[in-house]
């Protein structure tokens, strides 16, 4: 009986569910990041048509991560996934300098969205394994991140390919899950 009641108690205190939205341009590395988080094979990733979703247990949270395709044609659908988002993760290909402007614009538009207001945002400056990658500080400056006042934010350099920096970013996510400013 003692064991049963312990089990029942464990069952009644489930992990807090967290809804994480993973956005960014096509080829930013969102799906690789998602698979890296779920410890899955990342060697044969293909472009995402539509979305992928995976649940990952981390630090007492159940992270439900939504990876939405980044191709221009389906960006209008992003907003269908805004509702009840706890954390926004925005992924940038740090080596694709030609598209910094485009990615900056998309991010700025996201931050204007009412349904995403006050949602903490983590920016992954991805692909740091590439020699041509811009450092996170340069990207932060280019995107004028310091002007964000209405929410907590963080930029984290990482390589979804090697996994470097990913855990640091996720630690920040877990710390700021409940930081939605009201």
């Amino acid at each position: 009986k003692g064991l049963l009641s312990i089990l029942r108690k464990l069952k009644s205190a489930p992990d807090q569910e967290v809804r994480i939205l993973l956005l960014g341009l096509d080829n930013a590395g969102k799906t690789t990041l998602l698979k890296q988080l779920a410890s899955e094979d990342i060697s044969h990733i293909t472009p995402t048509q539509g979305f992928n979703i995976k649940s990952v247990q981390s630090q007492g949270f159940k992270l439900n991560v939504w990876d939405i395709g980044g191709q221009r044609k389906i960006r209008p659908y992003w907003r269908n996934y805004f509702e009840n988002t706890d954390i926004l993760i925005y992924v940038i290909d740090s080596a694709d300098r030609k598209r910094f402007e485009e990615t900056g614009q998309e991010l700025a538009e996201l931050l204007e969205e009412e349904k995403l207001s006050c949602v903490p945002v983590l920016i992954f400056a991805n692909k740091q394994d590439l020699l041509t990658a811009a450092p996170a500080s340069e990207i932060a400056e280019g995107l004028n991140l310091h002007t964000i006042r209405d929410r907590v934010w963080q930029i984290q350099s990482c390589s979804a390919l090697t996994g470097e920096g990913v855990q640091d970013g996720m630690n920040w996510v877990c710390k700021n899950v409940n930081a939605k400013k009201k």
Partner: peptide
């Protein structure tokens, strides 16, 4: 390139994990 279903203006990034086989 989007007219035949690639994502951006240079298809090369879409081959990714499938390489030239794709």
């Amino acid at each position: 390139w989007a007219d035949i279903g690639f994502q951006g203006d240079d298809p090369k990034t879409d081959f990714r994990g499938m390489g030239i086989l794709g």
